[in-house]
C-alpha cells in the first residue's frame, strides 16, 4: 500500500499520455472526417460543375471548330475582342435578353402576386383552383410551345378565330412572324408557364404571416391597401427577392421555349444571348466563339446577381 502513491504517481503521466494519445487520435479523426464526408459531393461538383466550366473558359481562348480542325488553335483574347467590338448579333441578343428577363420577371411577379392573394383567401373550390392554376408549371417547354403555336396559327388557330368572330380584327394576325407581335407572343406563352412559380412561392410566404399582424393593423385603422403595403409586402420581401433572382437567372438562360417556338427569329428578333450561344456552338460548330460568349454571359449574370442581392439587402432586416 505504501507503494501505491508512488505507483499512482508513476501511472499518472502514463494515463495522461494515454489520454493525450486518445484525444489526439480523436482530434485527428475529427480533422479528416468532415473532409471525408464532403469528398463524394466535392468529386461530383468538380466533375460536373468545375471541370465543364473550366473547359468553357479554356475553349474561350481557342479557335475550335470540330469540322475545320485545320483552323484550330490558341487565339488569346481574339474571341472576346470580336464579341465586344464587332459582333452586332451579340449586342442585339443581349438587348433581347434584358428585355425578355425584364418582361418575364415583372409580369410573372405581378400576376403571381395577384394569384397568390386570391388563393390565400377562403372561397369554395379553392383546392381545385390551386391545382388548376399551378398545373402550367409542370408542363415542359416543348409542350407549351406546341400548344401556343396551335393557338397562334393564322389559318387554324383559336386566337385569330375568336378575335375575328367578335369583330376585333378583320384579317388573321401572324403572331409569330409579324415584327410587332412576335416578341409579345413568345412572352405571353412563357408568362403562362412561369406565373405559377411565383404564385407558389408567394402563397407559401403569405401563409407564414401571422394573422394578428393584420388584426393589429386593422385596430390601427389600416385599410386593405395599407395592410398590403405596410404588412404583406415588407414580410414578403425576402421571398420576392429570392424568387425574382432565381427566375431572372432561369429566364436569362431560357432556351427551350424560344428555340422551339421561333428558333430566335424572325431575323434574330427573339434571339437571346443563350440562344445565340447555342447557335454558334451547336449549329455553326464554332465552339471557341460560343465558349467566349458563354463566359461573357456568365460575367453578366454574376454581376447582376451580386448587385441585386446587395441592393435588395437580402436577408437583412430593414
Amino acid at each position: 500500500m505504501r507503494n501505491q502513491p508512488a505507483a499512482a504517481t508513476a501511472s499518472r503521466p502514463q494515463a495522461r499520455a494515454a489520454d493525450l494519445t486518445v484525444r489526439r487520435r480523436a482530434g485527428r479523426r475529427r480533422s479528416w472526417l468532415p473532409y471525408l464526408t464532403l469528398l463524394p459531393a466535392s468529386v461530383l461538383i468538380a466533375s460536373f460543375v468545375v471541370f465543364p466550366v473550366a473547359t468553357v473558359f479554356y475553349y474561350s481562348l481557342q479557335q475550335y471548330d470540330v469540322t475545320r480542325p485545320y483552323l484550330n488553335g490558341f487565339v488569346g483574347l481574339d474571341n472576346f475582342r470580336q464579341v465586344l467590338t464587332s459582333d452586332d448579333v451579340f449586342r442585339t441578343s443581349l438587348a433581347v435578353s434584358v428585355k425578355w428577363v425584364g418582361s418575364e420577371v415583372v409580369g410573372q411577379l405581378v400576376l403571381g402576386m395577384i394569384l397568390a392573394l386570391v388563393l390565400n383567401s377562403a372561397f369554395r373550390g379553392r383546392g381545385l383552383a390551386r391545382s388548376l392554376l399551378f398545373s402550367p408549371w409542370a408542363v415542359s417547354g416543348v409542350v407549351v410551345t406546341t400548344m401556343w403555336k396551335l393557338l397562334y396559327n393564322p389559318f387554324t388557330g383559336m386566337l385569330d378565330t375568336v378575335l375575328t368572330r367578335v369583330g376585333l380584327i378583320h384579317a388573321p394576325i401572324q403572331w409569330l412572324s409579324d415584327l410587332d407581335t412576335v416578341f409579345g407572343a413568345v412572352v405571353a406563352a412563357e408568362l403562362w408557364r412561369g406565373v405559377p412559380f411565383f404564385a407558389i412561392v408567394l402563397l407559401a410566404a403569405l401563409q407564414g404571416i401571422p394573422t394578428d399582424l393584420y388584426e393589429a393593423a386593422a385596430v390601427d385603422g389600416a385599410g386593405r391597401w395599407q395592410a398590403f403595403t405596410r404588412v404583406t409586402l415588407p414580410l414578403l420581401k425576402d421571398a420576392i427577392i429570392l424568387a425574382t433572382l432565381l427566375r431572372g437567372v432561369w429566364e436569362f438562360n431560357n432556351v427551350d421555349l424560344i428555340y422551339t417556338m421561333t428558333a430566335g427569329g424572325p431575323g434574330d428578333l427573339t434571339t437571346t444571348l443563350p440562344l445565340y450561344v447555342v447557335n454558334q456552338a451547336i449549329r455553326y460548330h464554332n465552339f471557341g466563339y460560343g465558349s467566349a460568349l458563354s463566359v461573357v454571359a456568365f460575367a453578366v449574370l454574376l454581376l447582376f446577381a451580386v448587385l441585386y442581392l446587395r441592393l435588395g439587402r437580402f436577408g437583412r432586416d430593414d
Binding site: D65, T67, R68, V89, L179, G264, G265, P266, G267, D268, T271, N279, R283, Y284, H285, N286
Partner: peptide, 23 residues
C-alpha cells in the same frame, strides 16, 4: 467544304431579315 451546311444555317436569320426588309 466542311462548314458548307453551317454557312447555310448562319444565313437563315439574314434571309429572314431580307424578307422583313431589314437586309
Amino acid at each position: 467544304l466542311p462548314d458548307y451546311s453551317a454557312i447555310e444555317s448562319q444565313m437563315e436569320p439574314s434571309l429572314q431579315k431580307m424578307l422583313l426588309g431589314q437586309v
